[in-house]
Design a protein around this nucleic acid. Structure first.
Lengths: 224, 224
DNA sequence: GGTCGGATTTGATCTAGATCAATTGAAGAT
DNA sequence: ATCTTCAATTGATCTAGATCAAATCCGACC
């Protein structure tokens, strides 16, 4: 599957593998599409493999399908979902939903493990990806318990603003405000209020999902 | 180092490795001791290697040394600390402190990677350990944002009560109540109140750090 | 363009859990 | 045994952020 190979080459996980290894992974993988709102997998479901996102946006949720749920991560092109579950051969502990029409590559455990046995670099790469995930989650836990809502908002805005055209160029929130709010452990109402506090300050300007950081220094300050 | 080998054989991480591989790891590792209150490593410090706990108890903290901090995990014999950091060759994102006099084995990155190159089973084992860590952190994030303080306390008590003599046999909290409170994202005061609510119910009995689950069914109920 | 349903904002109110302040208790040190 | 010190409890009070309830606003579709 030349198509899947081309897609996997863009993956943050596999990018650094030799082309032959990527081809091998791609050969055992399946390209798939999900429309906005469709579920990739549910919490507790059997894990079909590793999902690599090639376009679109995926939300990872925790919490019962019925009842309240929380977004733990938003995954864009190049990202992946379900790594911990494939490695363990366990059921998913999160649910994944397409927030926009999305294209993905599904790599079954079997393919991944076969390739891992043949290609020396693969396992260290998987371990590194998992380690990054661990660090990310630790930093979330730290932020949720040590920082205020306002601080979390400030930090998040800086995070998404910095990589892109850092100065004055508006950045676009990767999802609806309610989703971002949940990602930051806030209610939509409170998130809205925090944003409007920052607008009142003159720290940022907001136009729909477009956010312009007017005063990065002040934003950095209130990030604590 | 026959001593280190004997210690590593008990490790949850390496247990399943063939004895030769363990010997190899042990040969490049160092046994060390830390007195109660001593710090193993600080947040942001350079990672010396993987710490395997052989006796005692270690707390993993996040947050500035000065200022408030939060316990993200408690590690007992057989457990390990610093895995994500060694794998990435990055600095620690948490601090580790000995809560009691502890014995550890320190395995430098070099040793781990050398052994990983020679022993096929090692990398998958490390990846599995990291995956378990990811799942644990996700479940913590979920609990912190979806469950009430009381629910978290109930869940924790069941968790530590179940493996041990599950019925009526008292279990001992692995650390001071203030530490457990922080681990559950509660203030010591509020943790104390929750415990006393459960005592008033007749659900549990408390004697210092000894806790007896009198009514597991009811406890399971209020765990949500 | 107009219409409809979900997203966002705004306002009013409430509460889980934090904070502050003593008091009591218990494990080590002398 | 007594003292000292830190941990745990108890009580009173406060607040960040949640919840409930309306307005608006906006984008997709006809």
């Amino acid at each position: 599957m030349a198509r899947a190979a081309r897609l996997l080459r863009r993956s943050s996980l596999f990018r650094s593998l030799p082309p032959a290894a990527i081809a091998r992974l791609a050969a055992g993988s399946i390209a798939l599409n999900r429309a906005r709102g469709e579920q990739l997998f549910g919490c507790g479901e059997r894990c079909a493999g590793l999902y690599t996102v090639t376009s679109g946006r995926i939300a990872l949720n925790v919490g019962a399908a019925a009842g309240p749920s929380k977004v733990i991560d938003l995954i864009g092109p190049g990202g992946h979902a379900g790594l911990a579950a494939v490695v363990l051969g366990a059921n998913h502990t999160t649910a994944a939903e397409a927030l926009t029409d999305s294209a993905l590559v599904l790599t079954p455990q079997e393919t991944l493990f076969e390739c891992g046995a043949a290609v020396t670099e693969l396992w260290p790469l998987l371990a590194a990806a998992l380690s990054r995930q661990v660090c990310g989650l630790i930093s979330d836990v730290a932020a949720f318990s040590l920082n205020s809502g306002r601080e979390r908002v400030a930090r998040y805005l800086l995070e998404i603003a910095t990589p892109r055209g850092s100065r004055q160029h508006p950045v676009t929130l990767p999802a609806k405000k309610g989703i971002i709010a949940s990602r930051l452990n806030l209610t939509p109402e409170y998130f809205s209020r925090m944003l409007h506090e920052l607008i009142a300050d003159g720290t940022i300007a907001v136009n729909g999902r477009q956010i312009t950081v007017l005063d990065p220094v002040r934003l950095r300050d209130c990030q604590h």
